[in-house]
């Protein structure tokens, strides 16, 4: 098992290099040049070139990228030119807020989708099944920024129950987490239902019932543990979506996370900060997916056995 984890870890490296190069390259293509906008109006070409050198922005893209990765490995992402502080510090200041929002939304998604998916499957073709399918379609098909605006309109502006933005109090996370969780809940409900339906047809449930296992234990223990295997796979992409979606929704709810930070950085052409945020974010995303993969192996002894050999 340890070897498997190590192998997956090593496999992450080329993925990260490729992704970070693409990000770096794209950011480089973006129009606007912070050095010329920072330099005093009367600076000569030579002055600007010297500034570039000082900021580590000289040379062709490959040279700069190699230097960048070298520094990254030492935990140095350069300075944020707009904030005059190290990018890595700014990033880690904001990252917890994004994590909080992502996990909040996943928590909401799980609490809704697992019970809903199970009762849809165990009451196959009943009204419960129908309602849950309609709900999950709704959750999946509503664009999240639009749902976010609707929720703000209803719950903060009209009813005044919940704050529309900020992060000062616990209640502030509710609306953005619901907004973000809706699509994940839709997705997870559908997969829970279908994998439970698949599992409820299996012979081993009949064996369990024949042993005298109570019906709710048959479902909760014998069926669910098997149904979890496909659910965990989907959960990986759900986590990815939640993290990515958090970035998108942060602006709507003025949530002080990495997403809003990145958008702000791009607006002032602080490319160092934007690139650093995106690359760090990618690293965490890849790590998350790795953890999900390992969890998957733990849920299914057949896969675990395959790797422990």
């Amino acid at each position: 098992m340890l070897r498997y984890i190590l192998k997956r870890f090593l496999m992450m490296i080329p993925v990260l290099l490729a992704v970070s190069f693409v990000v770096y390259f794209l950011m480089d293509l973006a129009p606007g040049d912070i050095v010329s906008s920072m330099a005093p109006a009367d600076a000569s070409e030579a002055d600007i070139e010297r500034m570039r050198e000082e900021l580590g922005l000289s040379g062709n893209i490959f040279e700069r990228y190699t230097r960048y990765i070298g520094n990254l490995l030492r935990g140095d992402l350069g300075m944020s030119l707009s904030m005059k502080r190290p990018v890595i510090n700014v990033f880690f200041e904001r990252f917890p807020a994004t994590l909080k929002l992502a996990f909040g939304s996943i928590f909401i998604a799980l609490v809704i989708s697992i019970p809903l998916g199970i009762s849809a499957a165990t009451n196959h073709r009943s009204w419960i099944d129908g309602t849950s399918m309609v709900l999950s379609m709704l959750g999946l098909s509503m664009p999240s920024f639009w749902l976010g605006l609707l929720l703000i309109l209803g719950f903060s502006l009209k009813l005044g129950w919940l704050p529309s933005g900020g992060s000062g109090f616990f209640s502030a996370i509710i609306l953005p987490a619901i907004t973000l969780g809706a699509a994940q809940a839709g997705n997870l409900t559908r997969i829970t239902r279908s994998s439970m339906l698949e599992v409820t047809r299996q012979d081993y449930l009949r064996t369990a019932r024949a042993k005298g296992v109570a019906e709710n234990v048959v479902i909760r223990k014998h069926a669910l543990k098997n149904a979890l295997i496909p659910i965990i796979t989907v959960f990986g992409s759900t986590l990815g979506n939640a993290l990515g979606g958090a970035v998108a929704i942060e602006t709507v709810f003025s949530w002080p996370g990495v997403g809003r930070l990145t958008v702000a950085a791009i607006n002032v052409r602080d490319m160092n900060l934007a690139t650093g945020c995106i690359i760090m974010f990618t690293i965490f995303l890849t790590l998350t997916l790795l953890i999900v993969d390992i969890a998957y192996a733990f849920a299914d002894p057949r896969i675990k056995a395959q790797y422990s050999r």
């Binding site: 081993y204 024949a210 295997i229 849920a299 002894p301």
Partner: peptide, 24 residues
């Protein structure tokens, strides 16, 4: 019925390949 099944009466099923739960 739950205390009857498995205690008073038990059943061996046809296909051993699918009759056991793979995750326990």
């Amino acid at each position: 019925l739950e205390s009857f099944r498995g205690n008073d009466i038990a059943m061996i099923f046809q296909d051993p390949m699918t009759a056991l739960n793979p995750v326990f």
